[in-house]
Design a protein around this nucleic acid. Structure first.
Lengths: 339, 339
DNA sequence: TTCGGGCATGTGCACGGTCACACGCCGCGC
DNA sequence: GCGCGGCGTGTGACCGTGCACATGCCCGAA
């Protein structure tokens, strides 16, 4: 080994200092872009750093500054398209802003898991928290543990609008519902998401709002679990009634299950029944028939989320955040009802 | 504030020590489950810890032990079902084993992004690395940067079998291909994944192996990009030829696109053309028709991955790892060819 | 009795950074 | 000529933990 440093350890600022003929503090100043350093000195230090392949020790820095530069993500259902997209976007935006990301995947139906995940993140000294999970339970845990870092929840404006950031779910749901109404549908069902997801609740509210605003008699929403499986069985149940011409599903996966059930019953989409989804997962364009749905910009959401969090951390200033409005994507699964 | 500790800081082991009437070292021993501590003393320390809501400082511990207890994940395409499932499984397994996880999402087509992501993880002092990405480029970067932590790549046995862990893609692909051959198909196309994904390569190899083993004339695989979109356009192209009765798609999304194209051409599945996919994403059971595919157990993969990594870190012992064999799921998208 | 050894605990230092403060030098105004 | 302030740099302490070593005690074997 032709190590420049005496020990087997990674080089420290003192090693750099010695080789550059300066004090360790000067090296620290170079690292932190302190203004008053002679360019000549600075260059010398930088050269030695490059030569030694010096890497600042995160732990040491975190210890003394008591700052971790880490944002935690508490995520449920992270295998689903929406959450996964948000996570990826947050991760990218955070890195851009000089922050690290640590994720804890939890089982949102298990209170213990929520608490554990949160403890896990807090133990890492996170400076900000993003919650991507059904909030109802998480909120309780959050309140209980009296979180002392800024946090943002990536769901619709629910119980804690101050911390919420989201695509406007209500507007999206109204968009979808209005689309069906404008096509002439009057008997419309809504297949909602799980009761304890605030996103699901918001979409349901949007549906109900738009229905009553258009003087269309509302039907009781069916509570689902986001899965195609559920959509399929819910569809089979519904079709024993057959007093409707359209269904608005709270996400694309359930819409897929619905379509499956409708076809099994020998009916045609959209001739007999129109179906509209929510999310616009990449596959939706290739469902049979291609699914009309509402698109959300998850990447933008992630970016704003980090901007808000970092703004709060760095300057205690709440950055103003506009609403992200979703977009209606009309494909072939919706049409005028046939009488 | 009725703080027990003098300063506004979080309590340290010394605060605990003072209140418990012991030395800081004794507290440290309690934390690390040192055997020789009187149960009485231990309990006293634990009581004070609980009272003070003491939390060990990770940074300080990492600084002195030079161990971060963190596993890094370098992931591409983490919004897709397979990678997302693996990540969630790894995260859970790692937490179980007392490790933390840090994820870097990269754009695998961009060499710079790979390198940045890797640097990002290394700067965090990760002790192990899991690579979930098309490996060809990543391998080069890995070699170039001479990674000094144990790593595992979550793809098929390719260039670096020593570090690879995966569901046996070749066996899975042979399973799928054999299924088609046994149904009586002779003219079979394979829609492969991107050239630089070793997984895609392995599935292609499995396809070719099985075809020649069964004395069926092979066709040149078509190289796709995993998306339903590509599957759709590839299907349209293929259908202008029509000299085949079955297609084996390297993943379920492309299979979905293929199905779309086949229906657009007025053909029926599986009467005119059989289609088989790979992955068994949760939606596959509700495609039209429900997709025959090959299921991989991602959760098991994640668990083994962490077990292997932690084994290597803790004892430098390579734990023996069996192969995970995928399972053929027969649904309605495949059938005997009609002549 | 003496001595070795294990147990339970304490003392001091090291880890690799940052921060507060001190220091020497130079230029400028009075 | 003297004091003052800013610039560039150095000195030492400190952050919260774990480790090596020291200490006192008790027990059993020589």
């Amino acid at each position: 080994m032709s190590e420049e440093t005496p020990k087997g350890r990674a080089p420290s600022i003192r090693d750099v200092a010695r080789l550059a003929g300066v004090s360790h503090q000067t090296v620290s100043r170079v690292l932190n872009h302190h203004p008053s350093i002679r360019p000549e000195t600075k260059q010398r230090v930088l050269d030695v750093m490059a030569e030694l392949q010096y890497q600042p020790n995160r732990a040491a820095r975190a210890l003394v500054t008591s700052r971790s530069h880490t944002i935690g993500i508490l995520a449920a259902s992270s295998t689903q398209y929406g959450p996964a997209s948000s996570i990826a976007a947050i991760e990218a935006a955070a890195r851009e802003a000089g922050y690290w990301v640590s994720t804890a995947n939890i089982d949102a139906t298990d209170g213990r898991s929520i608490s554990d995940g949160l403890a896990h993140l807090i133990a890492q000294g996170i400076e900000g928290l993003v919650v991507i999970a059904p909030q109802v339970r998480v909120f309780d845990t959050l309140a209980e543990r009296s979180i002392d870092v800024p946090y943002v929840t990536l769901q619709s404006t629910g119980r804690d609008p101050e911390h919420a950031l989201s695509v406007d779910q209500i507007a999206g749901a109204r968009l979808a519902t209005r689309h069906l109404i404008e096509l002439g549908h009057r008997d419309i069902y809504h297949l909602a998401g799980p009761q304890d997801w605030i996103e699901a609740e918001a979409r349901m509210r949007g549906f109900l709002d738009e229905m009553s605003a258009s003087d269309v008699p509302t039907t009781a929403p069916i509570l689902g679990d986001w899965t195609a499986e559920f959509g399929y069985y819910a569809g089979r149940e519904l079709l024993t009634i057959r007093d409707f011409t359209a269904i608005f599903s709270s996400n694309d996966q359930m819409a897929l299950g619905l379509m499956h059930a409708v076809r099994d019953a020998g009916l045609e989409i959209p001739r007999d029944i129109s179906i509209i989804g929510f999310d616009d997962i990449p596959e939706a364009a290739h469902f049979w028939p291609p699914l009309t749905t509402v698109r959300q910009d998850f990447a933008e959401l992630g970016r704003r989320c980090v901007a808000l969090l970092v703004g709060t951390i760095d300057s205690s200033t709440l950055e103003h955040r506009g609403t992200i409005v979703p977009e209606l994507i009309v494909r072939a699964s919706t049409g005028a009802p046939a009488f």
